[in-house]
Amino acid sequence: MAVEVAVPVSSDADIIGARTQARQVASALGFTHTATTLIATAVSEVARNIIVHAQRGSVTFERLESNGRHGLRVIARDSGPGIADLARAMEDGYSTAGGLGIGLPGSRRLMDEFVVDTAPGRGTVVSMTKWLS
């Protein structure tokens, strides 16, 4: 009985796959339809970031429990070039042709917790969590 589900992301089509998986996992954990949509949307954003910047990576879904609260953690990993200026990347409107767009700050607004671990040449790990209310 897995508490973790990992989805490899290496193509356009995998973005949809990651979304679908997100919806299924969130639904099974008891999130409302609305919360499930928010999670799936955030997953779509980070999965797309992986494709655009690193070509391949993975999205993992983990069930969480802490002090009686249950939640879902999504971890998007890639070994791409990493983000050189994280502060700017987290600003809205930083959407140059380079395409960092609204992916990160947008996803952060959709989730309860949001942590980015990245460095040039070290790849990127985005860890975002939503708690069942």
């Binding site: 339809h33 609305t34 499930t36 949509t37 928010l38 949307t41 954003e45 809205d92 609204i102 700050p105 947008g106 607004r109 959709l110």
Partner: peptide, 12 residues
């Protein structure tokens, strides 16, 4: 409805 909600949360 849920998509509209997600969109405004996303800021788009």
């Amino acid at each position: 409805p849920e998509v509209a909600f997600a969109m405004v949360q996303l800021g788009l």
